[in-house]
Structures are given as structure tokens and as C-alpha cells.
Amino acid sequence: MFPARAHREYPHRYRLEAGQCKKCGKVVFPRRLICPVCGHREFGKVILPDTGKLVSYSVIRVAPSQFTDEAPYAIGIAELTNGVKLMAQVADCDVDNIKVGMDIRIEFRRIQTDGHHGVLSYGYKFVPKWY
């Protein structure tokens, strides 16, 4: 990932910052310019909760080149405790043990290394919630 793009995305990738429509209250993640519900253009900042449930997932067995070492791995969609849905890799979990409905927690992880020379990209992943 280009450093400039990664840098722009720190607020949501690093800190789970979402936008909340000042008119109808809809929480959008990542933040956007226009509310998909009411068309309003003003948003406040909210931080997403770090727990939720997995609602869907797909196991990647043939991975893109930068992720081949991690295959097989799962990409899942989780619904957080405030109803917001987001997509991330499911880490620290054998792909055979992943189940729809399992409790997850969001953890800060390394996403990409860009070879031995590039910038390191960090962000959020899901891990099984066990406490």
C-alpha cells in the first residue's frame, strides 16, 4: 500500500473512528461525505466498539502474492455491538474453527509488510473473543 493512502486512512484503520450523521444519527464506517440514509452532510466523530459477532466469512486458500504466507485465512464481516458492520481478516483462529455467530474482538495487527524495504501497514483484525 502507498504510504500516502495508508496515512490518510489512519483515523479509521488505527482508531476505528466512524462518522455519525448529525441529522439522523446513522453511524458510517469508514466516514463519508453524504449520509446514505438522509443525505445530510455534517458528521460527528464516534469511536466504534471493539467487540461484536461474526455474521459472514470466506476462507481464502489461494491468496494474493503479499498474503501467501498467511493462507489459508478467513476474511469476515462482523456486526459490532452498536450495529455497525465491517470487514476484516479473522486472525488467531484455525479456519476450520470459524463459525458464523462467534464473538469477536478487534485487535491492532500488522496488515502488510511490503517486502523487506517498504513501509509497514497496520490496522484492525478480528480475533475470537474469549474474555
Partner: peptide, 13 residues
């Protein structure tokens, strides 16, 4: 540590 875990990620948590 798993491959996506390093000093930075451990420190953040």
C-alpha cells in the same frame, strides 16, 4: 508471536 504481531502491535494492545 503470530506473523502479524510485532513490538508495535503488542504495545498498542
Amino acid at each position: 508471536p503470530s506473523p502479524d504481531t510485532d513490538t508495535i502491535t503488542l504495545s498498542v494492545t
